[in-house]
Every structure is written in structure tokens, then in C-alpha cells.
Design a protein around this nucleic acid. Structure first.
Length: 850
RNA sequence: GGUCGAGUGGUGGAAUCGGUAGACACAACGGACUUAAAAUCCGUCGCCCUUAAAAAGGUGUGAGGGUUCAAGUCCCUCCUCGACCA
């Protein structure tokens, strides 16, 4: 009878309690103690604590970071490995409104759920450093940092066209809107002019771009950031207007094509439009402008949509040849990019070509090199200037330089750099976020509130929605809160916007270093010791926004002398997503897996027998295919969950979840258990010996091979799956060995410990050890044990494998050749044919060419 | 449309600098154990051909071509899928 089987449900809670009580993973906060060891800061992106709770996708983030933390700790580092909650935000507020609760209560419940679920996975966090972005002790410092940005003139109030979502009663950032809808809910979004707080991230565009070179990030990710910043070099060119003293300026990346500019376009919002429009064209232009303002940027600039526009009746003068060219208004030009006006070169720009073709505007070729006639297709490549006066004969790059020189010498323009990056819209008309530490005087001036007044706490209000006259929810607070007395005795009205959800996550990695500091956001000496984050891991959905915003804030803090590194995150890895089967009927309705059945291989709905479409999709609540970590832990334990998440594939790969796969790693853990424990009596296995024994040479060689591979593969982060398969090979070897030296097994448990900490600790304990194995030193392999006297040499004839030869490791090329030629299987293919060439790859193979 | 990435057994995935394709698992199948089942242990497992069985052989990493003694890996063309951007 098996009375003592592997029982994760028993050992996992036990050791988790031990770790908690003995503070096994507490990180010292004393700088002198810290300085005795090197540091490693490993951070998983903290979760947004939605009501949906934790799912397997979160674990795919937190398990690999935990393995790295465990490894580095055993390798002798002080390891910063914290966890906290990104708790402000719209989904929580919406839920609170629906359920008629306070968002703070909802948040408290959600964060508790998250913490319970995360703790069951057995991650080695220092929970004493837990942070919550929505509590005053934290957002006090978010407000404090905002004031530093404000003092540096990086925050300003502007009247900007914004994405207004009527259903939510708030403004959304460009990034939160796609195809005219809020990405989270699909509610329609319209454009409106409103007073909003902006952060001048564009002032940092060049540094955000340049400093990417300092980072150990995946190339693809850096590329995405570069693209988002969108630097383009070109020129500002000023055009005179015919029969007018007015001028306007365009930005172009192609000053070399100025001779080919046959018309200009103003954005519908351009202030000059109404001033220059010819009376005859006025009604058409007015109507067009009115219509254009309501369209989204995407609708306007999409290449696929038909170009529209109207002629203003006015002409601009092309500065390089004094030709009068018509000025049009068209919505494919945006007021927010460049100067809101363009010169159009239909010969060498796709959109301009399409527009000119539609409206019968001349198309002039000024760069030679296109395959088709210029009337049929624009040529955007490199070539030689023609029809371009003083530029003729030059290539594009030279022509750009020369034209900029000419423009500058004539006072007609300047070389200019443009960025696609826009300033960051930083205010929201919601409740559940950080209030701005600002107030408005009666004369309209804005004053910052003193640092000593922070935090500016959220006031209680009666309803979490805008006021009837459209002011933000905080305007519902009572007068006591709204009126603020300044140190100089004047009174002012508080700012009632709040900060967006991104604010709290822009600096949380710094707060972990000194989570309970009441004097400052963090201590400088601690910041100096710990920063930068050595490994930051999270989903690719944050590849642009969160990382760009956090880098921006960090650079501002750097300029303020508050942090010591230019960049916050030195190393970064995007883990892949977990996919799971989802079931959909013809109408698109999703079904939970338990609602489905298999009917002759086809999936059907249990209740109705409707045939279902089965597909692999990213896990999400709306697709009814979420796997809850608690369910997996209930059935197989946390160690099996951890191991399986790592075993299914590289950390960076997106891989499908398969229940059956968990069984496989669970069986592996049972085999590990049986190496140590006799399941019948609970005693140590009889196979274990105290002898250091050289009797099991094969076992020791496999052990050292395993040390080597697990160390290297874990270190590389992306190969944890092969680290586990090597551990499986070792366990298979050990299972078959006649006797098993305890020493050998103890070393193996070290290797297993970062991956499956509970079973490793339990078996370590059963082998008579009293320490935490997590605090033991990481083993190193002995190269001498790995080398064996003979090697297997692959014998090929004409590149085809013919036999494997066991030869002494020190055999010379000549000896290998002789052995191969003497081999009977090789002979069969060489026979009678002249040997043309012999290639020997040391210790690997020999290829005989005949 | 652009940029980047990826296509390997029934499945997830291995394969160093170009050097044994399919490690390690899952599933499946066969056997041992059992009254039986589960669990466990042992074995088979890309495709084709041959054979009583085997040995041996051929072929094979999305398709086609190329470079090389040698290609999953490098180059060219094409197809499909994914991510991001428009």
C-alpha cells in the first residue's frame, strides 16, 4: 500500500508558511549589509488588479522571474524580487459604479484575491515591500514626482482635440483608442476640443531614442519604440501666398523634391484656411472643414480610403521656381503633425499622387528611377534629380543637403527634425486615480500645492460620474475639499482632473527599493545600490506605452538628480502568451469547455448538440477559455504548475495549454519523490547510500552534465524548458541506478529548487538537512567528470551517415580516418571508388567523399 | 500596404559556429503486474520500400531553386501564419 505518496497539497502550504514565518526571502534594507554582496534586481510587471483575478498568463510572467531570482540568490547575490498592485484605473471604477460600492473597497478585495492566488504559487517575494498604487502612502509620491515635472515646465494645460468617450464620460489617450472605439470596451469615441493636462514627453524624444542603444532589450522591441518615436529629418519651408502678404510653413522629409511640388494642402483646422479662401470657394470649403473635424485621424489618413479635398481658390508661390501652385484643403493632412500644412509632390509620394490623379493636378517627375511612367505610379525610391534646376544630376541624399543649404541661404526655410511622438495627454475625467496637486486662483493662474500638503487625498463624492455641466467627478466633492488655502493666505480651487492609470506604474520599480519611506519616495543610497532593474519581464502589450512613459519619468528624475541611472530597465524580456482552446458556435457565441462534448471527433455543445468551432486563442475571460491557477494547484500542486509553464516551451514563445501536459511534469515530480522516499513506509529509499561512491560513474557524469546545462539554460532565461528536460534525463538515470549516493541527490535538489521549490525543500529536509535549500550555494560542475575516455564519431560517406564509431578521445585525424575506412559499413559504400576528399571535424564526425 | 518574426512527427517542442534531425515530454499502441481497474515498470512510435521476422536501403524540417564535402540552420523566389504599425 502506498501510504506516503508525493502529496503537494500537504507539503506546499507547510513550507510556504515556514518561509513566511522565518522571513526566508526578506531583503535587508540596511545599506551596509547590502554592500557585502553584489545585487540583482528582477521584476515582473505588476498586475492590474481587476476583478477577474489571476490567471495562468500572469503565472507565465511570475514563474520565470522567480526562477531567476532563486538562481541568483543561490549564486550569492542580494536579490530584489518584489510584488505589488497597479490598482487605480477605469475597470475597477466601472465595476464599483455598477455594484454601488466604493472603488477602494473593490480594490481591497481584488488585491487580496490576487495576493492569495500568487502566494499559492510559492514565489519568493519579499512581501513586506508590497505596494498598492491607490493608497495615499504611495500616491503621495506620485503627486510629488508630478510636481517635479511641473516645476521643470513639463506639464501644461492645453486646449486640444481629444478622444471623448460619451459612454464613459472621459477623455482617452490616443493609445487607448482604435478604430474610433475604446480598446477595452468597444464604446464609440468622438473628437472634441477640451482643456487637458499634457506632459511634454516630446522634449525627451531624442534621448528616448538615443538611449535605446544602452539597453539589453530584444531588437524587435527597440525597433517598436523607435518607430513610435518616429524621428524624421527634413526641412521647414515657407511659402508666400500670391496676392497676399501672408505666408505658411510646411514640413517635408523630401526637400529634394521641391521642384516637383505642384500644389499645397492645409489641414482643415489650419487657422489660415478661413483667411485665404477665395469668396467663390468659401461655402464649399466651410462645408468640407465642418465635416472633416468629426473624422478620426485614422479615417483621414488611411491609404485605403478615397482622398477628398476642396480648392481654396488661393495660390502659393513655389520658392525655388516662383511657380504659382494651388492651395487645397484636405483631411489627409493633420493639424497635429508637423505644421498642419504640406507641399504635395505627386510624382514622388503615394498619397499626393492619388490626390493629384483624382483632381487633375499636374504630376511632375523630379527624381529619375521609377519603372513606370510618373503619371501611372509615384516613385518613392532613390534616384537622380531631373527637372530641378540647380539640383539636376544629384542623388536624393545630396539633393536634400543642397536644397536645405539653398533654403537657409535664401531665408526660405531651415533643416528640421520631426517626431511622430506626441505630447502625452495626462488628465482624465474620472474618480479612481491620483488627484493633481494643483489649484486654480480666481484670475486663472495655476499654483502648485506645497510638498508638505501631500498627499492630496481623494475626497468622498456621491456619484462617480461627471457633473451635470460636464465637469469631472471630483467637482462633486464638498466645498471644504474644493477650496484650498495657500500658504500666503490666498484661497484657490483645486484641480478636479485626475491622472491616468499609467502614472502609478511610471515609478513603482523605485518604490520597492524603500517601500515604507515617509520622508522621500526612496532613499538615495538604496537607489544607488539597486538600480537599474537587471531583468524586467512582462507582456508585449506594454512594449511601447508603459515602457516609454516609465523611461520618460525616469529621465526627468535623472535630470533632477534623484536617480543615478539614465535608464530604468537594463534587461527586458517579453514572455509569450498562453493559448487555450476556445469553443464558438456559428453565431460566434463562446462556450465554456465543460459545456462542450466530443461527437465523433467533432466538438458540439452539450445542451443543444450545435456543432462548435474549436480554435487556439489567447486566454481571456471573454473567450471563456481562462485557466485558473488555483484549479491547477488543487489538482497537481504549485510545483507542477511552475514546471509545466516552463516546460511547454521557451519563455518568450506563445504556447498552447494542454491539461495532459501537466500530468507529464507531475509524473516527473513523483519520480523525484520516489528517489528519496519509500512510498510504502515513508522511510528513506533503500537505494540511498552514504558512500560517496565512484561505483556509479555514469550517474555522476550525468549529474555534472545536468549542473552545467541547468546553470547555462536557466541563465539564458529562454531555455528553461531544456533545463527541465535535462533534469528529467538525470532522474531517469537515477531511477535506473542500482544505488544512489545521498550526496549526488542533494546536489540535484539544488538544481531543482529554483524550479520546484517545495518538493526540493521537503526532500532536502527528509535527507536530514535543517536549512532552507533556497539559501544554499549553487553548485558548479567539474569538467573533468564530464570528459570520458572515448567519443562517438559519426562516419559519413558523401555526407550520409553510415556508422557511429567509438574512438579514443585523443585519436588523431589520421587514426580516425583509418578507423573509418576500416569500418565494414563504411567500406560497403566506399568500395572500389577513389577517395576524393576526407573531412574530419574533431570529436564529432568524419566525412569521406568518393 | 509597410516593418519584424515564425513554419520541424498525431501534439508541445529539441538540435552549439552549417556537422547524428526529432532530445525531453504528451497522446497512441504492445507487454509485465492485478480477480479487475487505476497507478507503476518495460517496450514500440516521421514516412516509404523490402521481409515470416529482421538486417539493410530510400526519403524527410511550408514549396521551388542555389551555395557547400555537409543545409532545419546560409542566399534567392514564392506560399502560409503571427505580432506591431498604417
Amino acid at each position: 500500500m502506498e501510504n506516503h505518496p508525493y502529496a503537494p497539497a500537504k507539503i506546499e502550504p507547510y513550507w510556504q508558511a515556514e518561509w513566511r514565518e522565518k522571513e526566508a526571502f526578506k531583503i535587508p534594507n540596511d545599506i551596509e549589509t547590502l554592500k557585502t554582496k553584489p545585487k540583482f534586481y528582477v521584476l515582473g510587471m505588476f498586475p492590474y488588479t481587476s476583478g477577474a483575478g489571476l490567471h495562468i498568463g500572469h503565472a507565465k510572467n511570475y514563474v520565470p522571474t522567480d526562477v531567476i531570482a532563486n538562481l541568483r540568490r543561490m549564486q550569492g547575490y542580494h536579490v530584489m524580487h518584489p510584488m505589488g498592485w497597479d490598482a487605480f484605473g477605469l475597470p475597477t471604477e466601472r465595476y464599483a459604479v455598477r455594484e454601488n460600492e466604493h472603488p477602494a473597497d473593490v480594490t481591497k478585495r481584488n488585491t487580496e484575491t490576487f495576493q492569495h492566488q500568487i502566494q499559492r504559487i510559492g514565489l519568493s517575494y519579499d512581501w513586506s515591500r508590497k505596494i498598492d498604487t491607490s493608497v495615499p502612502e504611495y500616491y503621495r509620491w506620485t503627486q510629488w514626482i508630478f510636481l517635479r515635472l511641473y516645476e521643470k515646465d513639463l506639464a501644461y494645460l492645453d486646449n486640444v482635440p481629444v478622444n471623448w468617450c460619451p459612454a464613459l464620460g472621459t477623455v482617452l489617450s490616443n493609445e487607448e483608442v482604435k478604430d474610433g472605439k475604446y480598446v477595452e470596451t468597444g464604446d464609440p469615441v468622438e473628437r472634441r476640443l477640451m482643456h487637458q493636462w499634457m506632459l511634454k514627453i516630446t522634449a525627451y524624444a531624442e534621448r528616448l531614442l538615443e538611449d535605446l542603444d544602452l539597453l539589453d532589450w530584444p531588437d524587435g522591441l527597440k525597433e517598436m519604440q523607435r518607430h513610435w518615436i518616429g524621428k524624421s529629418e527634413g526641412a521647414d519651408i515657407t511659402f508666400d501666398i500670391k496676392d497676399s502678404d501672408k505666408t505658411f510653413t510646411v514640413f517635408t522629409t523630401r526637400p529634394d523634391t521641391l521642384f516637383g511640388a505642384t500644389y499645397c494642402v492645409l489641414a482643415p483646422e489650419h487657422p489660415l484656411v478661413s483667411e485665404i479662401t477665395h469668396p467663390d470657394a468659401a461655402s464649399a470649403v466651410n462645408a468640407y472643414v465642418k465635416e472633416a473635424v468629426n473624422k478620426s485621424d485614422l479615417q483621414r489618413t488611411d491609404l485605403a480610403t478615397e482622398k477628398t479635398g476642396v480648392f481654396t481658390g488661393a495660390y502659393a508661390i513655389n520658392p525655388c521656381n516662383n511657380a504659382p501652385i494651388p492651395i487645397w484643403v484636405a483631411d489627409y493632412v493633420l493639424m497635429t503633425y508637423g505644421t498642419g500644412a504640406i507641399m504635395a509632390v505627386p510624382g514622388h509620394d503615394e498619397r499626393d499622387h492619388e490626390f493629384a490623379s483624382a483632381f487633375g493636378i499636374p504630376i511632375v517627375e523630379v527624381i529619375k528611377g521609377g519603372e513606370k511612367p510618373i503619371e501611372e505610379a509615384p516613385f518613392e525610391g532613390d534616384g537622380v534629380c531631373v527637372n530641378s534646376g540647380f539640383l539636376n544630376g544629384l542623388r536624393v541624399d545630396e539633393a536634400k543637403q543642397k536644397m536645405i543649404q539653398w533654403l537657409e541661404s535664401e531665408g526660405r526655410g531651415t533643416g528640421q527634425i520631426q517626431y511622430r511622438l506626441r505630447d502625452w495627454l495626462f488628465s482624465r475625467q474620472r474618480y479612481w486615480g491620483e488627484p493633481f496637486p494643483l489649484a486654480h486662483l480666481e484670475d486663472g493662474t495655476i499654483v502648485q500645492l506645497p510638498d508638505a500638503e501631500l498627499p492630496i487625498e481623494l475626497p468622498p463624492i456621491d456619484a462617480y460620474k461627471p457633473t451635470e455641466d460636464g465637469r469631472p467627478p471630483l467637482a462633486r466633492a464638498d466645498k471644504e475639499w474644493l477650496k484650498v488655502r495657500l500658504p500666503d493666505g490666498r484661497t484657490a480651487t483645486r484641480e478636479t482632473n485626475i491622472m491616468p492609470q499609467w502614472a502609478g506604474s511610471c515609478w513603482y520599480y523605485l518604490r520597492f527599493l524603500d517601500a515604507h519611506n515617509t520622508e522621500a519616495p526612496f532613499d538615495t543610497a538604496l537607489e544607488n545600490y539597486w538600480m537599474p532593474v537587471d531583468l524586467y519581464m512582462g507582456g508585449a502589450e506594454h512594449a511601447v506605452l508603459h515602457l516609454l512613459y516609465a523611461r520618460f519619468w525616469h529621465k526627468v528624475l535623472y535630470d533632477c538628480g534623484l536617480v543615478s541611472t539614465k535608464e530604468p530597465f537594463q534587461g527586458l524580456v517579453n514572455q509569450g502568451t498562453i493559448l487555450a482552446e476556445s469553443y464558438q458556435d456559428a453565431a460566434g457565441k463562446y462556450y465554456y469547455p465543460h459545456e462542450t462534448d466530443r461527437n465523433g471527433g467533432k466538438a458540439v455543445a452539450k445542451a443543444s448538440d450545435v456543432p462548435l468551432h474549436v480554435q487556439m486563442e489567447k486566454m481571456s475571460k471573454s473567450r471563456f477559455n481562462v485557466i485558473n491557477s488555483n484549479d491547477v494547484i488543487d489538482k497537481y500542486g504549485a510545483d507542477a504548475l511552475r514546471l509545466y509553464l516552463l516546460f511547454i516551451g521557451p519563455v518568450t514563445a506563445s504556447t498552447p495549454w494542454q491539461d495532459a501536459g501537466v500530468e507529464g511534469v507531475y509524473r516527473f515530480l513523483q519520480r523525484v519523490w520516489r528517489l528519496v522516499v519509500n512510498e510504502e513506509n515513508g522511510e528513506l529509499s533503500e537505494k540511498l547510500t552514504d558512500a560517496a561512491g565512484t561505483t556509479e560513474a555514469e550517474l555522476w557524469r550525468e549529474l555534472h552534465k545536468t549542473i552545467k546545462q541547468v546553470t547555462e539554460d536557466t541563465d539564458s532565461i529562454d531555455k528553461m524548458n531544456t533545463a527541465i528536460s535535462q533534469m528529467m534525463i538525470f532522474v531517469n538515470t537515477a531511477t535506473q541506478a542500482k544505488s544512489l549516493p545521498k550526496e549526488c541527490l542533494k546536489v540535484f535538489l539544488h538544481l531543482l529548487s529554483p524550479y520546484a521549490p517545495h518538493i526540493a525543500q521537503e526532500l532536502w529536509h527528509r535527507l536530514g538537512e535543517t536549512s532552507f535549500i533556497a539559501h544554499e550555494q549553487w553548485p558548479t560542475h567539474d569538467e573533468a567528470v564530464l570528459t570520458s575516455a572515448t567519443v562517438t564519431i559519426i562516419a559519413q560517406v558523401n555526407g550520409k551517415l553510415r556508422n557511429r564509431l567509438e574512438l579514443p578521445a585523443d585519436a588523431t585525424d589520421k587514426e580516425i580516418e583509418e578507423a573509418a575506412l576500416a569500418d565494414e559499413r563504411v567500406q560497403r559504400f566506399v568500395e572500389g571508388k577513389p577517395v576524393r576528399k576526407v573531412i574530419v571535424v574533431p570529436n564529432r564526425l568524419i566525412n569521406i567523399v568518393v
